[in-house]
């Protein structure tokens, strides 16, 4: 079993490496010379040459890549071209904010999707299933930004219960923080849960209709025992995979939600950095996001291996 886990770990690290190369290459394609961009109209040939030297732009792309990789590994993410601060410093606050948002969203999403998935699976074909499935379908077909804008229109503008923008930097208390973060969290949860409920329902139904659950019932075991000890443990594996898929989606989807609510997280910073061509920040955020995605998949894979007696 540990061999399996180590192989997964190795593959994850390899993927990270490959991704770093791909992203670096993509960013390389961004038009315009970084030095020109920074100095703008004040550029003189001498200042340009000096800045280029400072930014190592005279080296080849390959050399710059390894340079960057080396500094990454020693924890140095470079300096932001826009803010002229060390990147790590610059983005760590944002990372924390996004982590907060994601954390809240996950906390809400897990019980909601599991509960709804179980209900629709057990009562499949009946009214509860149809009703929930219709609502879920509608949410699944609305893009996150539409859900966000709708929520703002209803709860922030019409009803004025919650603030329309999530400028959490201005929060003075935890209560206020919660109010500010509520709408973006609900938006993410709504979008994620929709997919999860449908997928959970399918995998739960597969388990519920399996031969071994039938056997457990024919053994005369009480329903709770059948569900809890025969059905659920075998549905956990797929449930974990589904959650991993949704978390992966969320890592990308958070960009849109943060833009809608002007939430000070790394998603919005990403969009801004791309507009300003702030290369070091773009690279850093891409690596952080991809790293988070790969880590999530790795954890999910390992959990599935641990849970499945056949793989242990």
């Amino acid at each position: 079993m540990s061999k399996l886990v180590l192989t997964r770990l190795g593959m994850a690290l390899l993927s990270l490496l490959a991704v770093s190369a791909i992203i670096f290459w993509c960013v390389e394609l961004l038009p315009g010379d970084a030095a020109e961009r920074i100095l703008g109209r004040n550029a003189t040939p001498e200042s340009l040459a000096l800045l280029r030297e400072k930014l190592n732009l005279n080296l080849s792309a390959g050399e710059r890549y390894f340079d960057w990789l080396r500094s990454l590994l020693s924890g140095d993410f470079g300096v932001s071209l826009v803010a002229d601060r060390p990147v790590l410093d610059y983005i760590s606050g944002r990372i924390a904010n996004t982590a907060l948002l994601s954390g809240f969203a996950l906390l809400l999403y897990i019980p909601i999707s599991i509960a709804l998935g179980i209900i629709t699976a057990i009562y499949r074909g009946k009214f509860a299933d149809h009703a929930i499935s219709v609502i879920v379908l509608i949410f699944m077909c609305l893009p996150e930004f539409v859900i966000g804008i709708l929520l703002i229109s209803i709860f922030a503008i019409k009803l004025a219960w919650l603030p329309p923008l999530a400028l959490i930097g201005q929060a003075n208390s935890f209560g206020e923080l919660l109010r500010l973060i509520a709408l973006p969290t609900i938006t993410i949860v709504a979008a994620m849960s929709a997919y999860a409920v449908r997928m959970m329902r399918e995998s739960l139904i597969e388990v519920l209709e399996s031969s071994y659950v039938l056997m457990a019932r024919l053994k005369g075991l009480p329903t709770w025992r059948v569900l809890l000890f025969h059905a659920l443990p075998n549905a956990l594996g797929p449930a974990i995979n589904i959650t991993a898929l949704n978390v992966a989606w969320m890592i990308g989807g958070v960009v849109v939600v943060e833009s809608v609510f002007e939430f000070p997280g790394i998603g919005r910073l990403m969009v801004d950095s791309i507009s300003h061509k702030d290369v070091p920040v773009i690279l850093a955020i891409s690596m952080v996001m991809t790293g988070a995605y790969i880590a999530t998949n790795l954890i999910a894979d390992v959990l599935v291996i641990l849970l499945n007696p056949k793989l242990r």
Binding site: S15, I23, V256, T290, N297
Partner: peptide, 8 residues
Amino acid sequence: ISIPTLVL
């Protein structure tokens, strides 16, 4: 696939 679609 491991690169978030929106970012790429």
